[in-house]
Design a binder for these strands. Structure first.
Length: 651
DNA sequence: ATAGCACCAT
C-alpha cells in the first residue's frame, strides 16, 4: 500500500490516495481531476499541486517520489495512516513523521472538503443546483435541518453562514437544530459559540436552545456548566420549563446524585409555573430509573406507586424502566410480572422491553430462555435488532454453542442486517475457543466479504486462538497482516505474543517483542512483565525474575497478585520457606488478598500445607498464614469465577 | 415540532 498527499485548488484541499499500482504524475492528476469534478463540478488548479510536491520533495527523500510512481488505477480515498510496505523503500521510518506533520496541517482542509461534499450531497437531494444563489429560504433551511439530523453540523454551519452572507437569517428553530447537532457530536465549544452568536446577533436563543446546550454539557459530563447555564438563563429572559428540569434531573441521576436531583426538582418546581402535584410522568420515570440503578429498589417502587396513585397514564418507557430495574436486582421473575401487567394495561412491549429481558437472561446464563424471548419478539412483530443479536450471539459463543450462534448470524443476514464487528468477533472467538482456528479465519473472511472491516479485536481474538493452538508462526504472520491493513498491533497483541514466546520458554523472542513494544511507543504493562517473570521463573532463572519483579515494584506500575503468585509457587516448589514468607508479608501489606480468587486461594493454602510438610514449621508462622487466608472477608470467595489471567498464569 | 425518560458493548 502506498500513500500520497496531494494539494489541490485554492482552498488547500488535500486528497490522500492509496493504491498498489505504478502510475505517473499525469494519471494522478487525472484521478484527482475526476474526483474534483465530481465534488465541485470544476477543474482543480494543479499549479498548486506541483508547487506543494516540490515544496516537500526536500523533506520527503524517497517516499513521495516513490509514491508518485506507484499511484495507480484502484485509487481510493482513505484517511488512515499507512506504512509503506514496498521493499526497497528504506526510509519508511523517516517518512512517517513527515506524514504526521502534514496530517496535522491538512486536517482542517480535509474537514472542509468533507463538509462541502456533504453539503453538495444534501443539496442534490432537493434537486437544487449547487452553484445557484437563487435558492429560496425554505429550501436552505430544510437542507440545514436535514444536515443536522444526519449528524453533519459542519456542512450545516457552512450553509448557514452562506445564507447570512446573503442577508438571510435562518430562524431560531433552525439554529437549534445546529446547536443540537453540535452537542450530539460533542462539539460543545462550537455549540456554545453559536448560542453566543445568537444572543448577540439574533435570533435570540429560546428555552429549547438552552435545554439543548445544557443536555450537550451533560453528555460530556460537565453538569456544572449545565447548572451554570440553568442559573443564568433566567437573567437572559428565558424561563426554564419542564424539559429543562428533566435534562438536569436526568444528568444528576446519572451521576448518582439522587439527593441533588430531588433538591433541584423542588427548587425548580417552587420557582416555576408548572404545578408540583401533577408532576410529570417523564420526571418520575427518570427518578425511578435513577433509584433502580443506584440499587435502591424500594425507593424506586415508591415512585412507581406514586405515579399509579396520582393516576398518571403510564407509558411503555415507564414499564421498561421498571422491568429493567427488576432485572438489575436479579429478579427476572418480578420483571416478568411487570411485563404481564404491562400487557394487561394494553401496552405492547417494544424492542427495549425484549432486549432488557434478553440481556438479563443472558447475564444469568439462561441463554435458551433468551432465545425463546427472541422468538416471541419476532412473532409479536418486533424485529430483533443489532442489540438483540449482539447479546444472544456473544452469550451463545461464551457458552460454547457456536453452531447456534452462527445460525443467528445467518438470520441477521437474511433480515438484511449487517452485523457489527463485535458480533463477528464474538463468533470468531467462539470458534477459536472451540479450537477451530480454520473456521475462525474463514468467518473473518466472510466478515470482510460483507464489507465489515476487521478491527483490532478481530485480530487479537484470532491471534489468541492461534496461540492457544500452538500456531505461533501463524499468529506472527497475522500481526504482519494487520499492519498491511493499516491496523497497528496494540499492547494486547504484544502481550499475547510475549505470552506465547514465554510459554515456549523462548525468552529471547519475548525480550525482542518487549523492545518492539517500546519502539512503538507503548508502555509494557503488568501483564507483559508478569509473562517475562513467569518465563524466567520457568527457566529456573529465579534471580532474573526477582530482579524484574523488584524493578516493577520500584517503577510504581500498578501491580496485581499474579506475579506474587508465580514467585510464591516457585519458592514453595523449591521449599524456600524464608523467601516465601517474606513475599507473603509484602503480599499482605499490598493488600492483594482482596483480589484473591478461589483458585489462588487453594494454591496458597496448598503451598502452606506443603511448606508445613517440608519444614514442619512452627505453628505460629504456619498458622498465621493459613488463618489469615481462611478468615475474614476471604471466606466468601468460593463461588467466584476465576479470572482467565490467574488461571493461565498460575496453572 | 426545535429540547426531556428505557436496551448492548469483544
Amino acid at each position: 500500500m502506498q500513500t500520497l498527499l496531494i494539494a489541490t485548488e485554492e482552498s488547500h484541499i488535500f486528497l490522500r490516495l492509496v493504491n498498489g499500482g505504478s502510475q505517473t504524475l499525469d494519471s494522478i492528476k487525472d484521478f484527482v481531476g475526476r474526483i474534483f469534478a465530481d465534488v465541485f463540478c470544476r477543474k482543480p488548479n494543479f499549479d498548486l499541486v506541483d508547487q506543494r510536491i516540490s515544496e516537500h520533495s526536500g523533506i520527503l527523500p524517497c517516499a513521495l517520489q516513490d509514491m508518485i510512481e506507484t499511484v495507480g488505477d484502484q485509487c481510493q480515498l482513505r484517511t488512515k495512516n499507512w506504512f509503506s510496505q514496498r521493499k526497497g523503500c528504506n526510509n519508511k521510518g523517516d517518512s512517517q513523521p513527515v506524514f504526521n506533520v502534514l496530517d496535522t496541517m491538512l486536517k482542517d482542509s480535509l474537514d472542509r472538503l468533507k463538509m462541502m461534499r456533504e453539503c453538495c450531497i444534501s443539496w442534490a437531494h432537493v434537486g437544487s443546483s449547487f452553484c445557484s444563489l437563487e435558492t429560496n429560504y425554505t429550501q436552505h433551511v430544510s437542507i440545514i435541518r436535514t444536515l443536522c439530523l444526519e449528524g453533519k453540523p459542519g456542512a450545516a454551519i457552512w450553509l448557514k453562514n452562506k445564507m447570512i452572507h446573503n442577508d438571510v437569517i435562518p430562524d431560531v428553530i433552525t439554529h437549534n437544530y445546529i446547536v443540537n447537532a453540535l452537542c450530539k457530536a460533542g462539539e460543545l465549544k462550537k455549540a456554545d459559540w453559536i448560542v453566543s452568536e445568537m444572543s448577540y446577533w439574533g435570533p435570540s436563543p429560546n428555552c429549547a436552545t438552552y435545554n439543548t446546550l445544557m443536555k450537550g454539557y451533560c453528555l460530556v459530563d460537565d453538569v456544572d456548566r449545565a447548572l451554570d447555564l440553568f442559573s443564568t438563563m433566567g437573567n437572559r429572559g428565558v424561563m426554564p420549563n419542564r424539559v429543562t428540569c428533566n435534562v438536569l434531573v436526568h444528568a444528576l441521576c446519572k451521576k448518582g446524585l439522587l439527593e441533588d436531583a430531588l433538591n433541584l426538582l423542588e427548587e425548580i418546581l417552587d420557582d416555576n409555573f408548572f404545578d408540583k402535584e401533577n408532576s410529570n410522568l417523564i420526571t418520575s420515570t427518570i427518578l425511578m430509573d435513577g433509584y433502580f440503578k443506584s440499587g435502591d429498589t424500594m425507593q424506586a417502587l415508591i415512585f412507581w406507586n406514586d405515579m399509579i396513585q396520582r393516576g398518571s397514564q403510564m407509558d411503555v418507557i415507564a414499564y421498561n424502566v421498571a422491568i429493567h430495574g427488576f432485572c438489575l436486582s436479579q429478579d427476572v421473575t418480578v420483571a416478568y410480572q411487570y411485563l404481564s401487567e404491562m400487557l394487561k394495561s394494553g401496552f405492547l412491549p417494544d424492542a427495549f422491553t425484549y432486549n432488557t429481558l434478553i440481556s438479563a437472561l443472558c447475564k444469568d446464563g439462561r441463554t435458551d430462555e433468551a432465545c425463546y424471548i427472541h422468538s416471541v419478539m419476532s412473532r409479536m412483530g418486533v424485529s430483533p435488532d443489532q442489540i438483540s443479536y449482539k447479546m444472544l450471539i456473544t452469550s451463545l459463543c461464551i457458552q460454547g454453542y457456536v453452531m447456534k450462534a452462527s445460525e443467528f448470524l445467518l438470520s441477521m443476514l437474511e433480515s438484511s442486517i449487517v452485523p457489527e464487528p463485535v458480533i463477528w468477533n464474538a463468533l470468531i472467538d467462539g470458534y477459536g475457543r472451540a479450537g477451530d482456528t480454520e473456521k475462525a479465519l474463514s468467518i473473518r473472511d466472510q466478515m470482510a466479504e460483507f464489507g465489515v472491516v476487521p478491527n483490532i479485536f478481530t485480530y487479537n481474538i484470532l491471534i489468541h486462538a492461534l496461540i492457544k493452538e500452538g500456531k505461533i508462526v501463524e499468529a506472527h504472520s497475522l500481526k504482519k497482516e494487520m499492519l498491511s491493513n493499516g491496523l497497528f498491533p496494540d499492547l494486547v497483541t504484544y502481550n499475547l505474543l510475549v505470552g506465547a514466546a514465554c510459554g515456549n520458554g523462548d525468552i529471547r523472542s519475548a525480550l525482542q517483542l518487549h523492545d518492539e513494544i517500546l519502539r512503538r511507543g507503548y508502555n509494557p504493562d503488568i501483564v507483559t512483565y508478569t509473562e517475562l517473570i513467569k518465563c524466567y521463573s520457568m527457566k529456573g532463572k529465579v534471580m532474573e525474575a526477582e530482579k524484574l519483579f523488584a524493578n516493577i515494584r520500584r517503577s510504581g506500575l500498578p501491580i496485581d497478585h499474579v506475579p506474587f503468585l508465580i514467585l510464591m509457587k516457585k519458592y514453595c516448589k523449591r521449599g524456600d520457606l524464608n523467601m516465601a514468607f517474606d513475599l507473603y508479608q509484602v503480599w499482605c501489606i499490598m493488600d492483594f488478598i482482596s483480589h484473591t480468587t478461589t483458585h489462588l486461594f487453594i494454591l496458597a493454602v496448598n503451598a502452606v500445607e506443603r511448606m508445613k510438610q517440608l519444614y514442619c514449621i512452627d505453628m505460629v508462622t504456619g498458622h498465621s498464614i493459613g488463618c489469615s487466608l481462611w478468615t475474614g472477608s476471604h471466606g466468601g470467595f468460593a463461588g467466584l469465577l476465576v479470572p482467565t489471567r490467574t488461571l493461565e498464569l498460575a496453572a
